[in-house]
Amino acid sequence: MTALIESIVTSLVDHPEDIVVTETEEESKIVYHLSVNPDDVGKVIGKNGRIAKAIRTVVYAAKTNSNKRVYLDIM
């Protein structure tokens, strides 16, 4: 899943070397924390959050068959 997030975000940012995706697993959920260069945050979030919503939609649709919910946190 981290490779999917990185491949989507790499095409959006100017500094792809600063992309960091970490995974935190809890009892009932899996949280992916996406961190990018401060100059690229606006490009990843998009106008009115449209790009962030689209990325989240793809990630949620590609989740594994586990019963845990998947979240994407953009920092």
Rank of each mutant, 00 (worst) to 15 (best):
V44D: 10
G42P: 03
E27S: 12
D73S: 13
K29G: 00
V59R: 07
I19S: 04
V44Q: 09
S35W: 00
V9R: 06
T2C: 09
A52M: 08
V9I: 07
K63N: 13
K63T: 12
M75Y: 09
Y71V: 09
E25M: 04
A54E: 01
H33K: 14
V58I: 14
P38H: 10
V58C: 00
I45V: 15
L72Q: 07
S28Q: 13
I51Q: 07
Y32L: 06
K47P: 02
D39F: 02
Y60C: 07
I5T: 05
V9L: 07
V36E: 06
V31C: 10
P38A: 04
K29E: 15
E17G: 02
D40L: 06
P16H: 05
K43T: 00
V9A: 04
K29W: 03
Y60H: 14
V58Y: 01
I8F: 01
Y60I: 10
G49I: 03
A3Q: 15
M75K: 14
V41R: 12
P16G: 08
K47E: 12
K53C: 05
V70M: 12
V44F: 02
S28E: 15
L4I: 13
E6K: 11
H15Q: 12
E17Y: 01
I51V: 15
A3V: 09
A61D: 02
S35Q: 09
G46L: 12
V31F: 08
V44P: 02
V58F: 00
V41Q: 13
L72V: 09
I19K: 03
A54L: 02
I45Y: 05
D14H: 01
V21A: 03
N48T: 02
S35E: 12
K53M: 06
G46H: 01
T57Y: 10
S7P: 05
R56S: 08
H15M: 01
T10H: 04
N37H: 15
K43Y: 07
V21S: 10
D14M: 03
K63M: 12
V59Y: 03
V70I: 15
N48Y: 10
L34N: 02
E26N: 15
I8P: 01
R50H: 11
Y71E: 14
E17H: 09
V44L: 10
P38C: 11
T10G: 03
I5K: 04
M1I: 05
T22L: 09
A3W: 08
A62H: 04
V20R: 15
T64G: 14
S11A: 14
D40Y: 04
P38N: 13
V58K: 06
I19W: 00
Y71A: 14
N48C: 04
